[in-house]
Structures are given as structure tokens and as C-alpha cells.
Nucleic acid binder design. Structure first.
Lengths: 274, 274
DNA sequence: CGCCCAGTTGAATTGGCTCAATAGTCGTGG
DNA sequence: CCACGACTATTGAGCCAATTCAACTGGGCG
């Protein structure tokens, strides 16, 4: 319940609060509390009213939607990420359920306090705008991937994205269960297996959660990653030295316990549509 | 080029500017200009830097994404809607192309001025937040529909949504070409035809662009619309008397030339992810 | 009158899903 | 320490849905 100074620092490092003055930061985090949840805990059900902004500090969280007994994973978040900011700002019901995939440490910030602060302080408001805009663009990327690519292509691009996140090694470790990955990519677990099998023709070897790439060129030729769909690598020219924006996308930055000030500190934020 | 007072009023009626003081409104719209485009004009290509916020005053605009010679329609906007607000706020490149489907009147607002205003005035900033949050949630709904429903179900729900927008008549008129609708719903034109054919079992009759519903109950039982995916009808309890939010979704409100102050004035705004 | 294009229809193919069975893994408890 | 049960992952077979290719229809416009 009491928040450790180290955790406070991690929160301050979030894009949302990075530029905030001490007073604004105090206002926005008033009444905040920290909580630990075991794996598999449902934090929020689809349709619930949303009273808090959640900040994932450790562990991982799955966001999912459902309809007619079907479920689909819309995103898997890793620390440090915020989620359901949009619902908080609109005082609306949640559109997705949230549940922990691992034991997780989660900070809960009062929605009321955040809305009040955003209404009063234009700088903080602008940080919220950027966070939301980034989230929005993340989902747009997701829709594009879903509608424009086939299952194997989505998997190939996912692997390349993970590869880019994991120091571009020739060998990566899948950060989630394959069943979760399958749902995230919009296919069944069986189909994911077959998709992996198809990728063996492109030098992708699977050993449990360890994936190795033996012909990265061939894989890239198949995947054809695009800066307008995938969030990684080439990244066309940004206007200014915009630091961290546009995060969300299918999976968020990892964050052990150490300190990588520049590359860490990403969000689960997502952007609006048009 | 000079903006007519009637147009100015329509812009003021947008959620984005509704609460703005005269001074703030003047700042935000400084350097704005109005332009007419014929049908089929590309306003913006995927990947282009974005310098303006666009406001569609009449006509209609299609937002589309592409990859590997494939294209897909992500949204069709109708007046009055704003678009690419997220890219404007982040000074980022466009993730979608925008082209007119009909001759259109479009207002272009300086991105620079909007960012400056949002940074200086917390109330305007909050309006941007709400717009972005609504857009975000709109795309989330789109992803859910795409991943959780089959083609026929998406069509059925689309028809019900249109029906709700068109005074719940038993007969509606499709607002776009069927080829555009097919792409919007994530299928091929051929498949859309077959989906319509399947719906004839549920009392849906097609005569060109005119669709009539003879057994609305049966159609609803098939479609199973949800307040957490579709934007229309039942709409669970909102906390306060929140006016217009969460617009975007696949297609925006229509707006002839008359005046329906409460139901009109919708956005092309979309919300962020978490 | 005839062209062009949107829309529809049909047949063949592909891809994804469902169902079912098997193999490996982990954790629990005897 | 090992045996068991629960669960994840994989693989095969059959099925349903969607895409592709192709031909045909009908309406609008020159």
C-alpha cells in the first residue's frame, strides 16, 4: 500500500509524468495505491465502469475482448505500461477485460484526480494527449495488420518485432504462452503451430519458447515489415527528437528491474482513430 | 478560402470546439482555410507528414491502409468529422491514406496552431483528450468486430447500426458503394454479395442500395449487437450526461444541411488503446 | 447504340477452423 | 522419489468459410 520511492521514480519516468512539475505530479497521483496480484487475476471485466488508471510495474497483463463465448487477446502489456486511460478520461465503461498473466505489481491512480489534473494543467493534459494519440495509432496498426496480412505474415512480423526488441539477436525467447500469442495474432493455437512449421522454410527454428533465425534475410523478405504497420526498426524520419510515443502495439517494452533510462519507460497507451 | 459564418458555426458545434472560449477558438482556427475537392481526390498518402487537422464539412472521405499492393478501407467518414488528430498532435506521419469518395468541402486547420493551443489552454486540451479517447475506443471496437465476428455477422451488425442511424426505419439506403462497404467490413465484394444472400434467410431484402428488413427480430438474433462493440442503440448507463463521445466507428453521423443540434455534430475522432 | 463498370453468380482452390488423439511439462501429493 | 493429473503444444483428418478466377448481367453515360 505505501509506495516505495523506487516505484515512484519509475512512474515519474513514464512519458505521462515525465514533464510534470512536482505539484502536478502530486495532484495526479493523489490517493494512488500499489497492489500485488497473483497470476490469472481479473482486474477488470468488459463493461465495468472504470475508476482507476492502472500502471503495470512488474509482471504482465492481457487485455481481451469477448463476444458470444468467443474471446480474443487484444494486447499483452509488459512493464512499465499504463492501461485504460481512454475509458478513465471519458468516465466510460471498459471495452476490454484485463487479467494478469503473471504475478504482477500494479499501481492504481484515481481517475477522478487524473481528470481533474488534466483539466487544470495544460502541460499534463498535453502529455495525456500524446499518450492517447500513441495508443490510438497502435490500434490502427493492429487493424491494418489484421486486415491486410495473412496468419503466417502476421507471425513473421511479430517475430521480427520481438527480435528488434531483444537486441536483434539471432535467437529470441517468446515472452508469452503460445496460446496467448495465437489469440493475439488472431488465430487458433493449432494454426499457430502450422504457421511456425511453414516458417521453417525460411530458417525459423522452434525449440519450446526459444526461436532462432537462421536466414533472417529470407524471413524479412517474406514478412515485409512496414514502418506504417509495425513499430520497430527502420522508423522513418520523425519531425523533432520526439522521445517515446506510439507504444502499445501488440506488446510493450520489457523492463527487468535494472535501469535503462532511454529505451525503457514505454506505455500501453494507444491512439485514437482519425 | 474565406470561411462562411455558417461553416464557422458548424465547426464551433464540434465537440472539439464546443466548450472553447472565443479567444481560444480564434487561436485554434488561426490560419485555417476551406477547400473543395472533387470525388476521388487523395488528400493524404500513407506515410506523409501531417501538417493539418482536416474537418469534413460535406461529402465523404475514406481512410485506407495498404500493404503489399493490398488495400483496405479502415473507415468512411461523413460530415461533420475531424480526422488525423492523433498524427497532428504527435507531429507524426499519417498511418492511413485519405481520399474523397464524393465531392467534398474540407476545412484545414493548422496543426501547429492546434498543438500550441492545446499546450496553453487546459480546457481545449481536455476536449482534444476526449476526442482522441473516443477515436481510440472506436478503433478498439473495430478490432473486436474484426477478430470476434465472421463476415455475415459483421454485415448484419453493420446493417443494424445503419438502421439505428436512419431513424430505425424498416428500409435503409446504403451510404456507400458496396465495394467500399466490403473492404470496410474486411471482405471481398464477391463475398459481400454472398453474405447478403445469406441474410435473405433472415428477412433482409436487397434492391440496389436499398435494403429492407422484414424480420428485424430474426436479424437481431443473428447479429447479437453489443454495446461493447457496436456504437448504437441500447447503450449502457453513462456516468454523467456526457454528450457526444466515442464517434468514429466505421462510419460517422450524417448531416444534411439542416439543424439537429443534439444528434448531429459528431466526430471522426477515435480513442486510444488501453 | 455500345462501352464501361459495379454487382452478381458459379466453380475451383486455398486457408482457417473444429475435432480428436498424442506427446511433453509442470506441479502436486502420495 | 516417483506417479498422477492438468495443461500446453503439436499433428492429422475432415469441414466450412473465404479468396480467386472467370463469366455474365444490368445500368449509366458518351
Amino acid at each position: 500500500m505505501p509506495i516505495r520511492p523506487a516505484d515512484l521514480d519509475r512512474i515519474r519516468a513514464l512519458p505521462l509524468f515525465m514533464g510534470a512539475s512536482p505539484a502536478v505530479f502530486r495532484d495526479a497521483t493523489a490517493g494512488a495505491f500499489l497492489q500485488r496480484f497473483p497470476a490469472g487475476t481479473t482486474l477488470l471485466m468488459e463493461g465495468d465502469p472504470v475508476d482507476f488508471l492502472y500502471v503495470l510495474l512488474s509482471g504482465s497483463v492481457e487485455l481481451q475482448g469477448s463476444w458470444k463465448e468467443k474471446e480474443s487477446t487484444l494486447a499483452v502489456l509488459r512493464p512499465v505500461s499504463t492501461f485504460i486511460l481512454a475509458a478513465v478520461m471519458l468516465e466510460a465503461q471498459a471495452l476490454m477485460s484485463a487479467r494478469t498473466l503473471e504475478p504482477s505489481q500494479i499501481l492504481m491512480l484515481s481517475g477522478e484526480a487524473l481528470r481533474r489534473t488534466a483539466r487544470q494543467d495544460a502541460d499534463f493534459g498535453f502529455a495525456v494527449i500524446q499518450e492517447l494519440a500513441g495508443c490510438y495509432r497502435g490500434v490502427v496498426r493492429t487493424v491494418k495488420a489484421q486486415k491486410l496480412r495473412g496468419g503466417v505474415e502476421r507471425l513473421a512480423n511479430y517475430l521480427l518485432a520481438q527480435c528488434a526488441r531483444q537486441q536483434n539477436e539471432a535467437r529470441i525467447i517468446l515472452p508469452h504462452e503460445k496460446r496467448v500469442l495465437a489469440s493475439l495474432l488472431g488465430m487458433t493455437p493449432e494454426n499457430l503451430s502450422r504457421a511456425f512449421a511453414q516458417l521453417s522454410d525460411y530458417g525459423v527454428h522452434v525449440r519450446g519458447a526459444q526461436i532462432s533465425f537462421e536466414r533472417p534475410r529470407a524471413l524479412k523478405r517474406l514478412a515485409r515489415p512496414s514502418a506504417l504497420i509495425d513499430n520497430h526498426a527502420p522508423a522513418a524520419l520523425h519531425p523533432a527528437g520526439k522521445a517515446a510515443s506510439e507504444t502499445w502495439s501488440t506488446d510493450t517494452e520489457e523492463e527487468g528491474g535494472g535501469a535503462q533510462p532511454p529505451k525503457a519507460a514505454r506505455f500501453g497507451v494507444s491512439p485514437k482513430f482519425p
